[in-house]
Design a protein around this nucleic acid. Sequence first.
DNA 1: GTGAAAGCGCTAACAT
DNA 2: ATGTTAGCGCTTTCAC
Lengths: 333, 333
Amino acid sequence: MPTIREVAAAAEVSLATASRVLSGTRRVTPELAERVLAASRELGYRTNLVARGLRRQRTDTVGLVVPRIANPFFARLVQELTCLLQPDERVLLVCDAQDSVEVEAEALHALVDRQVDGLIVVPSSGAASRAALTAAAANVRLVQVDRVVRGAGLDLVAADHAAGIDMVLDHLAGCGWRRTLYVGASEDDSAGRERLAAYRRAVADGRTEPLAEPLLGSFSVAFGQQAGAALVRRALAGTAVVAGNDLIALGLLDALHRAGVAVPEEVAVTGFDDVGFTDVSAPPLTTVRQPVAEIAAGAVELVLAEDGPREPVEWRFRPHLVVRRSTDPRAQP
Amino acid sequence: MPTIREVAAAAEVSLATASRVLSGTRRVTPELAERVLAASRELGYRTNLVARGLRRQRTDTVGLVVPRIANPFFARLVQELTCLLQPDERVLLVCDAQDSVEVEAEALHALVDRQVDGLIVVPSSGAASRAALTAAAANVRLVQVDRVVRGAGLDLVAADHAAGIDMVLDHLAGCGWRRTLYVGASEDDSAGRERLAAYRRAVADGRTEPLAEPLLGSFSVAFGQQAGAALVRRALAGTAVVAGNDLIALGLLDALHRAGVAVPEEVAVTGFDDVGFTDVSAPPLTTVRQPVAEIAAGAVELVLAEDGPREPVEWRFRPHLVVRRSTDPRAQP
DNA sequence: GTGAAAGCGCTAACAT
DNA sequence: ATGTTAGCGCTTTCAC
C-alpha cells in the first residue's frame, strides 16, 4: 500500500502539502491540490488510520460492550449504533461480555487500550461491574445504556422501564384484567429491577391485584417455559401474566399453549422489548416497544460530545405499548 | 495515561528494556523485569495498542461486514466470532451493510484503512459485491462466510446448504409428505440460490413432487406472511411447504394459523437456520440448524492463518436436521 | 501558501 | 542482557 510520502513524491509537493490536501485540514493552491489528488488516485492511496489515530490522539472508533449479543435487543442496539456511526466514518468495536463481569472487564481494557474515542456499555451486573466501569471511565468518555451501575457517576441512556410497566398495567385494567402475576428475573440487572419495582409499586397502590408473589428466574425462553409449566397447575384462569421481557413471555405462551390454556380467552400474557418475533407468536404478543433508535442516538450523542467533564446525566426515553392478541381478542392482527 | 517512557524512567531502565518486559518479546534479568513490572503497576500503565499496531504492522483486530445484524443468524455469528477472538486479545470491528452494496463498499474501506489483520465478510450480493471484495482482498486476507461471490477467488466458509435441503426432503418423504412447495427468495444471495437449486434438483430427480413452481420473494417474516396468505386460497392440503429460511417459515406458520389451516395435520412447514425462536412457534418448527460455531471457527482460522498467498479454499460444514412438530405430530416437544 | 522537521508511543535493529 | 536510535505513517507546529 502506498504511503502519503509516495503520493507527495509523485505529485512533486512536500509531505505537508499532500497531508493538507488529503486530510482537508488547510487551504492549498488549487493547482497543487489537483496534482496531489491525481497522484493519490493514480496510486490508489488510502490514509492509514492507525497512523492518523496515533498522531491525532483520536481513532474515530467507538467501543461497545453488551452482556450477550444473541439477545435480540442488544443485536438491534448494535445495528442502530453501527448505522449511526458509519456516515461519520466511524466504526464500532464490539465485545460480548458473555454475562460475565470478568470477561466484561477484559473487554473494557481491550477497548480502552485501543484508544477508542468513547465507550458504550450495557453493564452485565448492577453491582459487580462497578469497578471495571469506573476504571475505564477514568480514561475515556463512557455511557451506560439500558442498565445502570448505581453510584458510579456515569451517564445513562435507557428506556423508562417503570413507565412501560405502568402502560401494561393500565392497558390490562382497561381490558378487565384485574388479577396479575409478574414473571421476571432476579438477576442483578437494573432494567429488570426497575420493571419489578414498578410492578410492586402498582400492587402497593392497589392498581393491580397480584395472584401471588412475583416469580423470579432469568430473562430467557427456557425460564418462561418452566414458569409456564409450573403455573398451569394453579388456578390461573382470569389472570394476566406480566413477563419481564419478551423471551420469558414467548416461553410462557409456548407452555400455556402446550397445556391447552387459551390465550387470551382464559389468561393474558404481556412482554417487554418488542424486538424479535412478538408479532408471529401464537397469539401475537402484547408488549412494550423499547425506543431503541432514540436510545442509540442518545448514547452516540453523549459519547461523542466534545464538552469537558460535567455532571453525569440520565436520559430516559418513553417506550410504547403495542397491543396485540395476547391480551385483547379484538386486537388486529 | 502514562507512557512506556515514564515506566522506564520510574524503573530506572532504558526504554527498550521496559518494552521487552512489557511486551514479553525478549528475556530480561529477573530483577530488572521486576522493577519494570512494579513501576508499571504503580503507574497503572497500559500499552497503547494504536502505537503498537503502527509499529508492528498488525493491530490484533478483525473486521466483519454482514448484510444486516438484526438477522438472528448474523447476530449469532457476531457472538461466536467475538467469543473466539477475545481470548487472544483480539477484537472485532463490526459493520452493517444495510443490505446495500454501496454501504458495504464503504464499510470495507473503513476496515482496511484501520489496518485490520483480516476481514470476514458475508457478501450482500452475489454479483454486485464482487468489485469491493476483490479490492479489499488485495490489501488484507479476506474470508467470505455463508454467502459467496463466485469467481472472485476468495476463501469461503459456509454450511452445505444443498445437503440441508436434501435432509429436509428426505425427512418429509419419510413422513409421507410427497408433495412439496418451495417458498424462498429471489435475492441475489448465493446461500438462497444454493437451497433453491438443491430443491430443483430433487424435483428433477423425482425425489419430491412440486405442487407448483417455487414462490420467490425475500428472506423476511413479511414475505412469509404474504406467501402464506396467498397460499391458503389454493388447494394446499397434504402439501409440505419448504421455506428458504426460518423468517419465511415463521411468517408462513402465522398466516396459516390465522387462516385456520392445521399444521402439521393438513400442511407441513419447514425452515432453515434454526436461530431465533423456532422452538416456541406454534407449532415448533422443523428446520435445519446451521453449524454456526464451526463456521465461525473456520473463518477465524482462515483469516488469521500466517501462510502466504495460496489457492482459495472452500470449507463446507454439514448442518443438522431438527425435527419438530411442524412436520411430524409425534415429535417432542 | 508551502516546506522542513518534530513527534504521537511503541518495537526492533543495531551496537555494546 | 542492556542501551541507543531509527522509524512505523501520519499531522502539525514552526519558519519562511
